[in-house]
Write a protein that binds this DNA or RNA. Structure first.
Lengths: 353, 353
DNA sequence: AACAATCATGCAATCGTTTGCCCGGGTTCT
DNA sequence: AGAACCCGGGCAAACGATTGCATGATTGTT
């Protein structure tokens, strides 16, 4: 890519006035009262007389006074900013979760600083450090694929910065978290396939690092158990989520004597690769193989052969609930130790197309 | 959605020590020197003796001293934060652009505050105000569909907060901007269709508010002119980007006596709706109708009938170039008025599948 | 040896806001 | 009438870092 044209317009500005923003001091001077009185008047402090209060507020409005946030932040030792750490923004799941966080934060007059780990541990560590240096008041995080330990998050403890994990939650005790349980909806999904007449349902699972709670697999087993069917281990394959790895996984399933007639895919992305690959092998989707998955991407409505069902995990709600929990932690000044660790579990939902 | 399980683990913490973050003062006290000496030593100020400098830096490292950003921000009157205003994060275009902004900002030790307008003017105004109140040092913006005037951005001028628009750039003079020209790639696109043998190429344009520079249309005309073909106005339809509106637009094109055999769609989203609708009318994509579009979504590779070509607009580069321009503005203390308005135009590129 | 120049460091103000404490004048109570 | 109290408001410290200016100590110059 090349810049092929750079237009520059030279323009004479109306002598930029270096506008000075009004401060509490100036209000005080103009009214011949002290800054503390002004400050209290603006905060409706009871010990300020009504007349003074009115005068101050009137003048402040006239002067377009706005409190200097940086000064307040400094004085209060708070930044009114939350850090939000995500694997990426490109997955619609996360960009939707952001809206949940943002809306909740806004309501509380907080700002949100977003960092993308790009699923790399090193970047995640750097982001945590940056957020710490910038003294965010709290952190929300969905961990990267590579994250095994959470030492880098634990250091935040020393600075009294609470952390709430959501969606991709590390498998360690003593954390605050919000996630969406996939157990029951997986049972729903598999039973849905059973009802459709499928006897052999394959499962393509994701990398173990993302599979910590492994509710998909547990649900998969539970559904079989409910139906008194044995689980054939050979029907379970693994992908690292790359296209190639997914194809190998399907290849493994398709090469069985007893091929599955349905596949439960780790997420919609895996489902798409699965469907594409299955079709490239001249098999018919929904006839030879049906696919059910997780995520419920809107885009799948444009496909000729979308997954016939997908599990919705409510990213917006996860984001907002996690943020609410974080605020709860922030607003409890933890007199003796912090609040008990809280783990909020939401229900997911099988959406049949 | 219901919370169906809230586990609470009561845990006795190791008597949270209310760790106090070390300050410059404490370093000074421990070494029995003044804070100013410490400050200068940490900044390698030449007037500090080598021995003292070493001592200070050593102790600072041992104590894990980190300068209090909020204090610095306050003192310097700078927040080292950029505001980034986008229509939404769900479009991959924007979430990719963010990475460009983020990476560039990080390199300069800046943070990025993101706000989504959700294509609503009112939200956009509120975000601008919030960012102003939080004293961001500069703003990057891609305007909402509803934004006709930029008064709310102009108010930032009074606070000496520079603004750089990118991608969705308002059509007014005297702004800084970065965008990706679609003129030549549109010519490429139409000529590509001509070479494929298409004589009648329809064009579905977007709402006028997003069509300010209208380079697509100009390119469309130019390609016809190059080929010495007249443009039939009836081949141009308009959509407000909603599915319904797009379908009406196609309906209009398909009802012509002289149907187009190819359609240039405003973006990939319109293209998808177009393809879906055309197929629902039992017409064959790539036989009866071919579609070319803008955006080059990765997801289209999963479609049976994707657009046969799409124009890439390099969101990452737009984001990083816009951020670089903004830094240029920030680093010029504008002694007499600001820098001349700069408009950087990048080249787009037709990607043939 | 006296004085200047240089070097190393300290003092104190400053940024804008908040907040604990104090004070003067008026009212009320005994 | 003296003590206790309340009301309205001011004083000044504090938050942490930066920086112009002053000061003291050392060295160099003649």
């Amino acid at each position: 890519m090349i810049v092929f044209d750079t237009q520059k317009y030279a323009v004479i500005l109306a002598k930029h006035m270096e506008k000075k923003v009004p401060t509490i001091k100036e209000i005080a001077k103009k009214l011949n009262i002290s800054v503390s009185t002004v400050s209290r008047a603006l905060h409706n402090h009871p010990s300020i007389g009504l007349r003074t209060k009115m005068q101050v507020q009137k003048l402040a409005a006239e002067m377009n006074y706005e409190p200097n946030q940086t000064a307040i932040q400094f004085k209060q030792g708070k930044t009114f900013t939350l850090g939000l750490i995500l694997p990426n923004l490109r997955e619609e799941f996360f960009s939707t979760a952001i809206s949940g966080v943002e809306d909740t934060a806004f309501k509380n007059n907080y700002n949100v600083l977003i960092g993308q780990s790009h699923d790399e541990l090193q970047r995640e560590e750097r982001i945590v450090e940056t957020m710490r240096k910038h003294r965010v008041d709290g952190v929300l995080a969905s961990i990267s694929k590579q994250t095994k330990s959470i030492e880098h998050f634990e250091q935040l403890d020393k600075y009294n910065i609470p952390v709430v994990f959501f969606d991709r939650v590390p498998d360690v005790p003593n954390i605050h978290s919000v996630w969406c349980s996939l157990y029951y909806s997986t049972i729903d999904a598999v039973e849905f396939l059973f009802r459709k007449g499928h006897q052999r349902v394959g499962y393509i699972q994701g990398p173990l690092s993302l599979n910590i709670k492994n509710e998909r697999l547990e649900g998969y087993y539970a559904a079989h158990k409910n139906k008194k069917l044995p689980v054939q281990e050979s029907l379970i394959a693994t992908t690292d989520l790359s296209k190639e790895s997914t194809e190998q996984a399907i290849e493994k399933l398709l090469s069985l004597k007893n091929k599955p007639t349905a596949i439960l895919a780790f997420n919609d992305n895996v489902a798409l690769d699965t469907i594409q690959y299955v079709r490239s092998k001249k098999l018919k989707i929904n006839k030879d193989i049906s696919v059910v998955s997780y995520a419920n991407w809107p885009i799948t409505s444009y496909l000729d052969f979308p997954p016939i069902a997908s599990v919705e995990q409510f990213p917006y709600e996860q984001g907002s609930r996690a943020t609410e929990l974080l605020f709860k932690l922030l607003n409890t000044k933890s007199p003796e130790g912090s609040l008990p660790y809280e783990n909020i579990v939401l229900k997911s939902e099988l959406i049949v197309r």
